[in-house]
Amino acid sequence: MTRVLVVDDQFLIRAGLVGLLRAAPGVEVVGEAADGAEAVALAARTRPDVILMDIRMPGLNGIQATERILAGAANEGDGPAPRILVLTTFDLDEYVYGALRAGASGFLLKDSGPERLLAAVAAVGGGDALFAPSVTRRLVEAFARQAGTGVGDGAEPPPDLAALTTREVEVLKLIARGLSNLEIADRLYISEATVKTHLNRTMTKLDLDSRAQAVVVAYETGLVTPGG
């Protein structure tokens, strides 16, 4: 059972999402929030597996809420952090980039159909942290040059990659290019399980929360370049 928290400041959108999710097998809606502050409080109390997070909200926005929820989960250290799926009205959104930079697992357009929404929740809940690699890569390429210039509140500089092994760097490059684990395994002549191991070690060394965040880091550090 995937436990989901729904966050959106527009009542009709939030109610529609809740109704759709409640009708889906294998999904339990553990709460709904109308703003970022309420989302942070509910996430701490209900410990959802997945959070559908509206990105543009008055007061505490989706970027700030994402940062606080993931920081709170890290401080608690009790079980995995929730995977945050950002909801947006258009894909090339610098707010979404800020949320991915903060550790969100991916994003979904609000006009996506019910099947795509449920597939996204299932994918993210199952650990597939990058739901749409090609679209996410395009978003990151569009805004990576703005790294450290105020995209999101309190944006931190990208981490140093010196701690990574040569193979971990290779895997990170290919992840940033939008390749799946299976495609990376074929490219490097290693097993898919080995790819996952390299990725997990990379994320641990760089203190990252999601695969999407790893893509952001790859661009911000210059490991890969837009259009390269």
Rank of each mutant, 00 (worst) to 15 (best):
L118P: 06
A120Q: 12
K110T: 13
L174P: 01
G125E: 04
V96Y: 03
E141C: 08
P114L: 14
A147K: 03
A122H: 13
G26N: 09
I55R: 00
T194A: 15
V140M: 04
I51E: 00
K205Q: 11
E67V: 12
P80W: 11
R3P: 00
P58M: 05
V18C: 13
G36F: 02
Q146A: 05
R47C: 04
I175W: 02
L5H: 01
L182C: 00
R47L: 08
R83F: 00
V4W: 05
F107Q: 10
E168H: 09
A214P: 02
L206I: 11
Y97V: 03
L208K: 06
N181T: 06
A43Y: 05
A176S: 11
L179S: 07
L108R: 09
A102C: 05
A15W: 10
R187T: 14
N61S: 00
K110C: 05
L12T: 14
N181C: 07
G113W: 08
L164Q: 09
P58V: 06
E220P: 04
R83D: 02
P226H: 12
E94H: 04
A163C: 14
A43F: 02
R167E: 14
A212I: 04
E76G: 10
S105H: 13
F143E: 00
A120C: 10
A162H: 15
L17M: 15
Q146P: 00
F107C: 05
A193H: 12
G26R: 11
A15G: 07
D207H: 14
S210M: 03
L117V: 15
A120H: 10
L199T: 10
I84G: 01
R167F: 08
A37Y: 03
G125A: 13
L161G: 10
A163R: 15
Q64T: 05
E76C: 07
A120R: 12
P58W: 03
P48Q: 03
L174M: 11
K205Y: 03
G113Q: 11
L199F: 08
D93K: 07
L20R: 15
E28F: 02
P158N: 07
I13A: 15
A44L: 10
T204P: 00
E192D: 14
D35I: 06
D111T: 15
L87G: 05
M1V: 12
T166W: 09
L130G: 00
A99R: 01
A81R: 06
A218H: 10
Q213C: 04
Y219K: 00
A104L: 09
K205I: 06
G19R: 13
G36T: 06
I175H: 01
V18H: 07
A147E: 09
G178S: 08
L42G: 02
D111E: 14
F90M: 13
D209V: 09
A218C: 05
L208S: 05
A81N: 05
G72V: 06
R138Y: 08
T66Q: 02
A155R: 11
V151A: 01
R83P: 03
L21Q: 09
L108F: 09
R167L: 10
R211C: 01
V140D: 01
A24I: 04
G127R: 13
L108T: 13
L188H: 08
L21K: 11
P226E: 12
A65F: 03
